[in-house]
Design a binder for these strands. Structure first.
Lengths: 337, 337
DNA sequence: ACGCCGGACTTTATCGATAAAGTAGGCGCC
DNA sequence: GGCGCCTACTTTATCGATAAAGTCCGGCGT
């Protein structure tokens, strides 16, 4: 039903290829013909058929994004800026949520491969690297974001998680906390790295660590943060500062602290990670480590585009963004008893 | 580079069409051949080329979603459930953010049409219906969500905004507010409907209205909510309850109230709309009108799929979800001076 | 014994574009 | 004046699948 090149070609008495060349600004066309074609295109509101084009060029002009949870503001932010970056170059963005489920994620990656996306950007919930090997076999470029895998030499855009752990811990100590606890995230690079940074920093200062691991995963971070904090509150000695794996879990932790009748930050200071958009509006505005979620999306987009543009496979690149402490009330201005 | 039907056909000494038929469970194939083909497909990890298939069937198995802002938790939630619903039927989801900009949105819709998505789901920022007419010309089914257009007979999934305005206003009155103000959203159906419901309800009770309109649009709702609330606070008489167009603006409004030294809900009660995921974690947990964002995404998906499945154009359908008051601290338990 | 039917495939045409190779005419140059 | 080259096209092949029509063969009914 939509207008095809063939229709324009017939109307103008030229060949289809001429139309195609005009569309792609081929040098091979006379000025008069070019104008006639362009006019007719405008009149008929012609739009090229991307699926046909994709079939012959092998380019779909689409990039796939797989995230654990679109509702998590961190990933939403990444998606938004990634999309913006791709759009500038005429690329579309196909999005899927894995719900932190490796099986679902694998399915979704396969769907994207079947759709022949030109590249995949993924914040993965995989526990092994098999899925990435499959992507490599297909020769589809991919970019890991936020979470990386040891033993996988892949392009990555994210933050230095150990540094995050260090910054958060040091910040808590700088506001006077002496018993700094950690609510630890899942067994992936982010969880492990942030924990390692926390641990190393405490060791350097000769302080003991106190760690609870979240039960569930990211999608319901606030619930597991709540549970984890309750465990910490019943510990002896009770911590006076908590570094939470991410902002949702920090939100849950704060709720647990407040509901138990304690004060934030006076009794327990709290810092999260991700610096989610609404952190400043929380019951107690939440201190956090900013991960540049927007910039991350943008950089991932640029990297993906450069991988697509490379005619020969290029060596993987790693881009690390600088994490920054964003102090707010949940750690500042403590009055101690 | 990936495996094609042709490869399998050659290996097995049958024709390409036989492979194609096995893949689509055509009845026309003998059991033994079927098994041989299936085995070989598995061995080679064959995946059909969706772009080639799309070219001949005219179906891309993709749906497009256009929202004003992916980071807005309401739309993120919609996107997540829409995606889940489509995935069940093997459909992919192409997402774009318009940033509340009608021009950008139009561009994005055109991109999606060029990509030949099978349907478009859109929370539109258009001021006219021209763009929808274009979609109709292309014979691409579309579903409006959240925001509708008078004079446009299109499928719609959303909420009764007048009812929302009524419920919110009545709720504020039920907790004792006598000077109920409204921070009004943009000039689109949601803003207009919620305002109309508010207005009608006040009139019925013989109370005066007090309205400020947000300057900027949804993407930065919290900032404009803050500004609007400052205007209201300097009014005489000062309102003792505010119904905010949506949750982000309510968050901004609360910040304005608290920063001016007043209390929520004691001095000013606040209710928002959307019941965004983190509403309960806010400085004062925010009362809101739930719009079933998840259900909305799901229903929009079902509706889109049914439109795609219809061989002949079907009359547009409207699905309204029931809004519900979710009372929290920002309105409950007021102690008046 | 013959025709017909239906199961199991194969052949041919097509979807809407692009890539690569081919061609016709005009013009300059020796 | 003929050769070659450039410009502005056109022709042909192809991308990876599906749709529709065609073919071959064995069995069955009468």
């Amino acid at each position: 039903m939509p207008v095809r090149m063939k229709d324009i070609a017939r109307d103008l008495g030229v060949s289809v290829v001429t139309i195609s060349k005009v569309l792609r600004n081929h040098s091979d066309i006379g000025e008069e013909t070019r104008q006639r074609v362009l006019n007719r295109m405008k009149e008929l509101n012609y739009q090229p058929n991307y699926t046909a084009r994709a079939l012959v060029t092998g380019r779909t002009m689409c990039v796939g994004l797989v995230v654990p949870d679109l509702v998590h503001p961190f990933f939403a932010e990444v998606a938004k800026w990634l999309s913006a970056c791709l759009r500038e170059q005429g690329y579309g963005l196909l999005i899927a949520s894995s719900d932190e489920n490796p099986e679902v994620e694998r399915d979704e990656v396969n769907q994207m491969l079947a759709r022949r996306v030109d590249a995949i950007v993924i914040a993965s919930a995989q526990t092994s690297v098999d899925t990435f090997r499959e992507i490599e076999q297909r020769k589809t470029p991919y970019v890991l974001i936020d979470r990386r895998y040891s033993g996988l030499d892949a392009s990555f855009v994210g933050t230095d998680d150990e540094l995050i752990g260090q910054l958060a811990t040091e910040h808590l100590m700088s506001v006077g906390c002496r018993r700094v606890a950690h609510i630890r995230g899942p067994e992936i690079s982010t969880g492990a790295g942030r924990y390692a940074g926390y641990r190393r920093t405490l060791q350097r200062h000769g302080l003991p660590e106190q760690v609870v691991t979240e039960k569930s995963s990211d999608a319901a971070g606030d619930v597991s943060g709540f549970d984890a904090m309750q465990t910490l509150l019943s510990a002896d000695p009770r911590p006076d500062g908590v570094f939470c794996y991410n902002d949702p879990s920090a939100m849950g932790a704060m709720r647990a602290i407040l509901e138990s009748g304690l004060r934030v930050p006076d009794d327990v200071a709290v810092i999260g990670c991700g610096n989610v958009l609404y952190a400043q509006f929380l019951r107690v505005p939440l201190s956090s480590i900013d991960q540049c979620s927007g910039g991350l999306g943008h950089e991932a987009g640029r990297l993906a585009l450069s991988l697509i543009a490379a005619k020969v496979p290029v060596p993987p690149r790693t881009i690390l963004l600088e994490p920054k402490v964003v102090p707010r009330e949940s750690t500042l201005g403590r009055r101690l008893r």
